[in-house]
Simulated scan of single mutants.
Amino acid sequence: MSASLSIAGAEEVQKLRQHAYRIRRNALLMGEVQGQGYVGQALGVADVLAVAYFRHLKFRADDPEWEGRDRFLLSIGHYAIALYAALIEAGIVLESEIENYGSDDSILPMSGMATYTPGMEITGGSLGHGLGIGVGMALGLKRKGSDSYIYNLLSDGELNEGSTWEAAASASHWKLNNLIAIVDVNDQQADERSSKVLNYEPIADRWTAFGWETWRVNGNDLEELVRAFDSAVSSQSDKPRVIICDTLMGRGVPLLETREKTHFIRVDEDEWSLALKQLDDVYGIK
């Protein structure tokens, strides 16, 4: 572990919990604006984003294109509402933009596009391309002598794509130890459960076989996430790193946690306020 990174105590974990709460709340508020959105994924991955942005990423909220920043790549473009929620919490995007979510000329379109949103590094519309872009960025940073990291959030469904595994092989070949992939495993995609469309288990062994350092954690457990991210960043290995995060879509809102779900969780008009109330109750917010 680097000298600048102290072991997370109970107080820091509590701070991360509050960041995760506000990320979830931001996502629900944006979903309410349009009456829709991939809020299930946002609720599921909020803890991952909290640890990434508020324990590890180097960034300047007032200068999103600062050369010394770490790059966070959203390969799964339909998770944009989740990343927007984190960018708002980080102060990179103004909170007032929530009310413009998904509207014409908004800087927060419903699918993430780099040309629109400060802090959105890539356009991740077609799935399976983010890790390849991340490999190119990581290789470029290495050749420039930069100490910045590339973080790439991708989904279990993207493991169906051959391009993802080509990128994984390339990262190992080039010894890109400045590349950290984060796989959100919620076992959901458009046509069926991800594991039934194309079984990805044993997922950790597959990444290890491709030459990656591998961690698998409960992606809704902040302490597990902190340990995995800390280990990935502090490792002295020359291998790329992957953190496999098992998450629950709808996490933090009981009515959505238990709802039958696929790629998209439907939230009825009268349920948005209830979802917000349940989130507040889970986090003990009065």
Rank of each mutant, 00 (worst) to 15 (best):
L274V: 13
G162R: 03
Y283L: 07
I150G: 02
Q18R: 14
P202G: 08
E161C: 07
K286V: 14
V33I: 14
Y149L: 09
I180M: 07
G130K: 02
V45N: 02
N160F: 11
S170Y: 11
K261M: 13
V253W: 02
I23F: 06
G91P: 09
E97W: 12
T262H: 14
W212R: 08
L74G: 00
A138Q: 06
N152A: 02
G284K: 12
I92C: 06
L83D: 00
F210G: 02
G31V: 03
S155K: 01
H263D: 05
L87S: 05
H19T: 05
W66R: 12
L225Q: 09
I23S: 05
I244P: 03
H173V: 12
A86Y: 02
L176W: 01
S195L: 06
M110N: 07
I285T: 10
L94V: 09
R60G: 04
L127M: 11
D47C: 08
W165D: 05
A50F: 06
L139N: 12
N26Y: 09
I133M: 12
K58H: 15
H173Y: 15
A61T: 09
V33T: 04
L108P: 04
E213H: 10
N186T: 05
S170F: 11
A181C: 11
G91S: 10
D104M: 12
L153F: 02
G136T: 07
I150P: 01
L222C: 10
Y151R: 01
L274D: 09
A169H: 11
D205W: 08
V253R: 02
L153H: 00
S235G: 05
L139W: 14
P254R: 04
N218T: 11
D268W: 11
I7C: 07
A169W: 09
A275N: 03
G125N: 10
A228C: 05
L49M: 14
P118Q: 05
E121M: 01
L29E: 15
A42Q: 02
D187T: 08
I244W: 04
